[in-house]
Design a protein around this nucleic acid. Structure first.
Length: 486
RNA sequence: GGUCUCGUGGCCGAGUGGCUAGGCAGAGCUCUGCAAAAGCUUCCACAGCGGUUCGAAUCCGCUCGAGACCUCCA
């Protein structure tokens, strides 16, 4: 088993060698979306980042259990005690579970378009209410939670006497206790930094359940503690999520786990950075997010055209997952062209001529690609090397470099592994031409070739233009014409 | 106000002490009836000011600028 992989543990702010708790098994938990509206493209970036990580771990041979939750209850709005899902349900006059269903399906369809592998388990908060209530009770029993007017809060001060609240996000409790902004409706809490484990429901509240403390609903951070423990154990390898979840969400999760189970739950914390838009974070709650649909259709004021899911995925992979990535029309156009060049080279691999000896060092390329990914999943570096390989392919085609049979096989295997399996990129436009269509286009090309021989350039240009309108781009080469589908 | 991150060529984005990624755009060339596409080659950088060092984009300090978290958020 590989041990060369290093990843950046954001809890220790350091690059660490990856040593799973129980190799070859790896437990990976990622905070999923709250399904009260369409995900935006920033959300997609996060899940694509973790898809890359998941794919690479699989590629290395680990048996990964990838758990990603669906949050279908519980996120309070600040000005009311109503959560986002029930608010949306009320506004649209439908059942909360209809909201959940609609956007869960939408989320799955979206991620499939981006070629993200589905997680091994995708648990929902509402499916784990019993476990959540149990954990609340345990935390109370251990003295780290208290009931107040039908709600239960986590006692941060009490917890901090035994543990270190703020260890993940680098905060200190004294600052938090004195520095937290004053918000209304927190009078039930002993300290402003305390957070809800269970929240009392008003009579008009739709999503509520019975509990030892009355009708209510679970707190904001509880579900992830419960579901990660249930499916991955009290200690597991990797917990991931967006940077913006680091505090308070992940901090609270750690506190709940340690308070309830007396274990340090997570060995490696991975946080992905934000996709920005004009330099600023997209915020679902402020409606500033661009949706995948808008990008895939080009129906957005900032975009001059539609972009394919693979273009967007490739664009995202050209930045490291821990860097912010600023999204713009120009950057996407660049990604589109780059991706095309990469895929064309990959597709031409089988046609490369072979010679006795190679003038290129395939094993060196192999080393460099793995070194890049082993260095905290550095996909931009890996892609840079892949473009070097693209150059090789073109030079070999031109007869300016040569490759042996065995090296060609090795290179083919290597590039396919990285582009297809690890980066998760696939051809989008091929295969919409069936054999019959291909035959038709070839026939048109023959007619055009004859026209050219007859010096009937009006005809040959006309054929070229018409085919382009239909979606076939003609490329005239030395040995005749070929085409690509647009 | 507190905590933290970042500022790289026209654009996106790697790189943490010397060998100055990569993509796109630009330029030149090849191919070509023309064009497109493609390919090859190539120019342009490290916010500013100081300091450490034989040597800094990379370390330290200051200034300016941007952003994130502190409240639901990927």
């Amino acid at each position: 088993m590989q041990t060369k992989l290093k990843l950046y543990n954001s809890k220790n702010r350091a690059l660490e060698t990856f040593n799973p708790l129980n190799p070859p098994f790896v437990g990976l938990y990622v905070c999923g979306p709250t399904v009260y509206s369409e995900v935006h493209i920033g959300n997609v970036r996060t899940f694509n980042s973790f898809d890359l990580i998941y794919r690479y771990l699989l590629h290395l041979g680990y048996k990964v259990r990838y758990v990603r939750n669906i949050t279908d209850v519980g996120h309070l709005l600040d000005d009311t005690s109503e959560d986002r899902i029930s608010k949306k349900a009320r506004l649209e006059n439908i059942e909360p579970m209809e909201v959940v269903q609609r956007y869960t399906v939408d989320f799955h369809q979206t991620m499939e378009q981006f070629n993200a592998l589905p997680p091994s388990i995708e648990p929902t908060a509402t499916g784990h209410l019993i476990e959540q209530i149990e954990l609340v009770q345990t935390i109370i029993d251990k003295g780290f939670g208290y009931e107040s007017n039908g709600s239960v809060y986590f006692d941060v001060a009490a917890y901090n006497n035994h543990h270190n609240y703020g260890e993940l996000s680098g905060r200190n409790v004294d600052d938090l206790l004195s520095n937290t902004r004053d918000l209304d409706g927190q009078s039930d809490k002993r300290h402003p930094a305390d957070f809800a484990l269970w929240k009392n429901a008003e009579p008009q509240h739709i999503m509520k359940w019975n509990s030892p403390w009355g009708m209510g609903f679970p707190g904001w951070h509880l579900e992830c503690s419960v579901m990660s423990t249930k499916y991955l154990g009290k200690q597991f390898d990797i917990h991931g999520g967006g940077m913006d979840l680091k505090f308070p969400h992940h901090e609270c999760e750690i506190a709940q786990n340690k308070a309830g189970y007396d274990e340090e739950p997570v060995k490696y914390w991975l946080h992905t950075n934000m996709l920005t838009f004009n330099g600023k974070k997209m915020a679902k709650s402020e409606g500033t997010g661009v949706t995948p649909r808008e990008m895939l259709t080009g129906d957005h004021p900032l975009l001059t055209q539609a972009y394919s899911a693979m273009t967007i995925r490739f664009f995202m992979l050209q930045a490291h997952y821990r860097s912010t990535l600023d999204f713009s029309n120009d950057a996407l156009q660049a990604a589109e062209k780059g991706l095309k060049r990469l895929m064309v080279a990959l597709n031409s691999l089988p046609n490369l001529p072979v010679l006795e000896k190679s003038t290129l060092d395939v094993s060196d390329m192999h080393e460099k690609l793995y070194a890049a990914m082993n260095d905290d999943f550095n996909s931009p570096i890996a892609i840079a090397h892949l473009f070097e390989a693209v150059k090789w392919v073109n030079l070999i085609s031109d007869g300016k470099e040569s490759i042996s049979e065995s090296d060609k096989d090795a290179l083919t295997k290597l590039l396919n592994a990285f582009v297809t399996d690890i980066l998760g990129l696939k051809n989008e436009s091929e295969n919409d031409g069936t054999e019959k269509i291909d035959g038709l286009v070839q026939f048109a090309l023959e007619l055009r070739q004859q026209a050219k021989l007859d010096k009937n350039y009006a005809m040959s240009d006309s054929i070229r233009d018409r085919l382009k309108e239909i979606g076939f781009e003609i490329k005239d080469g030395k040995d005749g014409s070929t085409y690509t589908t647009l």
